[in-house]
Design a protein around this nucleic acid. Sequence first.
DNA 1: AAGAGGCCCTGATAGC
DNA 2: TGCTATCAGGGCCTCT
Length: 287
Amino acid sequence: MPELPEVEIVKQSLNKKIKGKIIKKVEVKNRNLRLKVPLKFEKYLENQKIIKVHRFSKYLILFLSNNYICLIHLGMSGTVHLVYNKKKNLMTNMSFYHSKQLPQKHNHISIFFDNFKIIYNDPRRFGFFEILKEKSFLKKRFCKLGPEPFDSRFNLNYLDKNLKNKEKNIKSFLLDQNFVSGIGNIYANEILYFCKIKPSKKGKKLTIQDYKNILNYTKKVLLNAIQKGGSSIRDFRNISGSSGQFQKDFKVYQREGLSCKRSNCKGIIKKKNISKRSSFFCNFCQK
DNA sequence: AAGAGGCCCTGATAGC
DNA sequence: TGCTATCAGGGCCTCT
């Protein structure tokens, strides 16, 4: 669920809080994430300075002063929390992510700094941590991933080369990290709405204008989400979205049965499973 | 080779 | 009330 914009927000927050700081201690309570947290994980991190935090696609990349690199993927329910040590008895916490409180359960990893710690929480444990020996391994690690939508390699030629004559539908392409990386189910739905393309449209049926719209709106939708602080994500603890803000921005996602927001469009938002993922689209303006 | 589908996991919710 | 079934989703793997 954290897609590129949400991970970008976490990256920005981390850079503000932990860049230049030294890791005092690391505690792993549960190594059984999507990938096993390496036994030496703590050793690689402890006493190292965080040089900087980068992001590629949905991955956080922590550069350490010993040249090791810590990769973090939030999976679909991973959150990062910042907890301050207060003088008084209480620990207050603020989240990098939108959950307001530090959850009681599933706090798997704690990274301690001088007067605060960051905590990795992940109920479904689809997230993972990896250690890379140095920079050059990054390239290899990400070599199979497609370009981000902002990458100049993501262009008309690239789309034509990859989509032409393909039976696979465009929705699956947008979710395929080896084709374009950073987009997840929520933004894939939103992007296709803006493109006026129905999610089930096959690659081979896409027109040049479709290509142009895809190039345009993949960027626009993600950038807009980043600007809004990743606010368009729903809270996994609150699927109904009653706590608020986020849902307002969605054009189609989780709007089954509601009317299309496009002015003068009389369409109704439909929900349909495409390749096992829920897809939302306007039955009128998305062709 | 391309594309579809399964699996990992927990928690919220629907249905009986 | 309390049970079970279903769904949610990212990445990787296997099968056809």
